[in-house]
């Protein structure tokens, strides 16, 4: 409430204990290579969408693993599914499938179709 000309700031901290990591767990179960990501950023470097929009698959991986699902859901539809990221990933992550499952799961958990 803004009673005195200012309001409380929204905490930026990732509160790991309060977050829901079930989406990440589900992705890891369906696409085990998801676990192998070391956040090197090769996928994001080569990404068509990332060159023009605020989209980084590396960042989305981190957000999902920490249970920051809202933040991930907001960005995830910018991917054009070209698949270049699979070619460059040094850890053999099936990046396209990770993104696919994430989209599917997030659209369900958010209660409306996002695809």
């Amino acid at each position: 409430m803004n009673k005195f000309g200012f309001t409380l700031s929204v905490p930026r901290v990732i509160d790991y204990d309060k977050n829901d990591r079930s989406v990440a767990d589900l992705i890891a179960a369906k696409e085990p290579t998801f676990r192998l990501c070391i956040e090197c950023g090769t996928c994001a470097a080569t990404c068509t969408a990332g060159n023009f929009t605020d989209f980084s698959l590396r960042e989305i991986n981190v957000l999902l693993r920490r249970g920051e699902n809202e933040a991930a859901a907001e960005k995830i539809n910018r991917c054009m599914l070209c698949g270049k990221c699979i070619l460059v990933c040094p850890r053999g992550v099936n990046t396209r499938n990770v993104l696919f499952i994430a989209r599917e799961t997030l659209s369900k958990t958010n209660g409306h179709e996002r695809l």
Partner: peptide, 12 residues
């Protein structure tokens, strides 16, 4: 700090 998310992180 979760430097790759660019945000502070708190955990028990």
């Amino acid at each position: 700090e979760d430097t790759l998310a660019g945000r502070p992180l708190r955990m028990e």
